[in-house]
Design a protein around this nucleic acid. Sequence first.
RNA 1: GCCGACGUAGCUCAAUUGGCAGAGCAGCUGAUUUGUAAUCAGCAGGUUACCAGUUCAAGUCUGGUCGUCGGCUCCA
Length: 634
Amino acid sequence: MSFIKVTLEDGFEVSFPAGITCQEVLQELKGRNTGAIAALIDGRESDLTTRLDESCRLEFIDFDSPRGARIYRHTASHILAQAVKRLYPGARLGIGPAIDTGFYYDFEFDEPISADDLDRIEKEMNRIIAEDLPLRRLEPSRREIKKVFSKENEPYKLELIEELPEDEIISCYQQGDFIDLCAGPHLTSTGRVNAIKLTGLAGAYWRGDERNPMLQRIYGTAFPTQDQLKEHLHRLEEARKRDHRKLGRELDLFSFQEEGPGFPFFHYPGLIVLQELTQFWREEHHRAGYEEIKTPIILNRQLWENSGHWEHFRENMYFTRIDEQDYAVKPMNCPGAMLVYRTRMHSYRDFPRRIAEMGLVHRHELSGTLHGLMRVRSFTQDDAHIFLLPDQVEAEIKGIIDLVERFYHIFGFKYRVELSTRPEKAMGSTEQWEKATAILKRVLGDREIDYRVNQGEGAFYGPKIDFHLRDCLGREWQCSTIQLDFQMPEKFDLTYIGEDGQRHRPVVIHRVIYGAMERFFALLIEHYAGAFPAWLAPVQVVVIPITERHHGYGRDIYRRLAGRFRVSIDERNEKVGYKIREAQLKKIPYMLIVGDREEESRRVAVRSREDGDLGPFAVDDFVRRLQQELEEKR
RNA sequence: GCCGACGUAGCUCAAUUGGCAGAGCAGCUGAUUUGUAAUCAGCAGGUUACCAGUUCAAGUCUGGUCGUCGGCUCCA
């Protein structure tokens, strides 16, 4: 018998007979990671049942690692598919991957199922778990496997097989009488899955293409214990309390009306937050060398034909007629900025010229995509168009990334970066696109920023770097974006006079930092759970007189603060506890309680939203404290 | 736009099999003058999203429209 050398995670080397399975190694090493659900053989994800024929490095992964959780839930998705096939033998299988917080599987049913059917399916899944069916990996030939899926009437699986490279080994996993095309790895048996829950039913186009038939997608999640599952569901419920749509109503920030779906109404408290965000933005942009402009919302058809929007963006635009001429409501701010640029001659010495605009744009988004303030049909972009020389591009993009990071740092946002490349419906030559894309890649590389390439998702005029933030339920939304554009300068015949006295074409960078004020606001609401830091809070201080006889002193305090802060006074005929509770629910950062003690000592009792009663303060001391807090944007 | 679900007072939610639309909070009025998260009492509040239909009778059943929610697609 030959022996192999297995090197473990901690560098420990053990000798085993060749052909031993990962699981057997694990048993030999009892006590070292008993929660293992899969193995990494020389870094390759593998089943615990995989045999080791050669010396290798071996690690075990458990549920607590992200890959472990994915493997665990992927097995859960197979259990879902098996349950569905038992209850609906005619159902055709789509795909069934694990996702961040669970898994899904797509099916085509003869008769659509409804949400009520999920209970039945979940029960069947639990039955399959109780049966503790072992999962076996099979590597049949292409012919055999096609035969199996033809017999099972699985057209979608056959389609997937057709598209696998000729030389690739195709693997399947079998549990009981259920077999699925799958790269694996998987748990050793269905009984290893402990706590499952089906969480939703939705439509999903086959392979994400709206020209394909719509399948029914069942979402679920799975955990090693019922407690973990319960905790996960509880967390979800807590997260829902931060939902900006709920808090927006409760805090009177904004509303939506049936009279204008997707067009937000901002109420005074919400508008204050937007105004503060805008003011901060102005200060930062002034410092960073931007000028600000404002351009019209409605411009004529010829402009939009010239810019390419008429051809490339028409289905998202709103139109109107004025004096028997066609006009469009702007879906982007760029053409306006181009017109402003063209109003005078430029020298290369003017560059980079940074023209910013808080521009209100309107886009006709599909009704099904509207989502609170996150996706609306009219929104304000904190836009800027930067006109520069080709060799200034790299440094400028670095500067913009600095600005983005400065903003996100203030709010404490974590983000994810994507690079989007040439879409199908693009203007300009492939060479131009490649050149532009290479510049963006280089900047990201130099800054050591992790990013994902999003093939074919660029704007129609150029590639872009996008920054994504997460909402309370973990959904990602694009906010900042930096887009290179070699097309608009052509279309608008933009020029500058170079060192050589000749006319040249400038490059344009489009960029937004917040992205859309509406979306950023929504993310902020969820990020802070409605409890805005004092500099953003609609009301920063509320004066609470204890009884009517303290109203006079309360008003003195109110008047002393009113010029400097956003302050209100609660003179209602209620008990202090009631007024405090209400201020707390409105998430007002500071409450100043004034009664006999305070009036006599000419002080105020300060209560903070976060830390409760802070005790008596001289008014000037409180003013200094709050002023500093506002300056630091804490 | 597509798939599924939902739509009752400002908000959160009730209303057996189709049988007089109700509660809490908020609002208003009055009493109470209050010390760090809800004082008490009374009053008012509705074309049950909208439009048709079935029925002696529709919040409830059927069809359509609009909107919202969860996804898909799309995107700031």
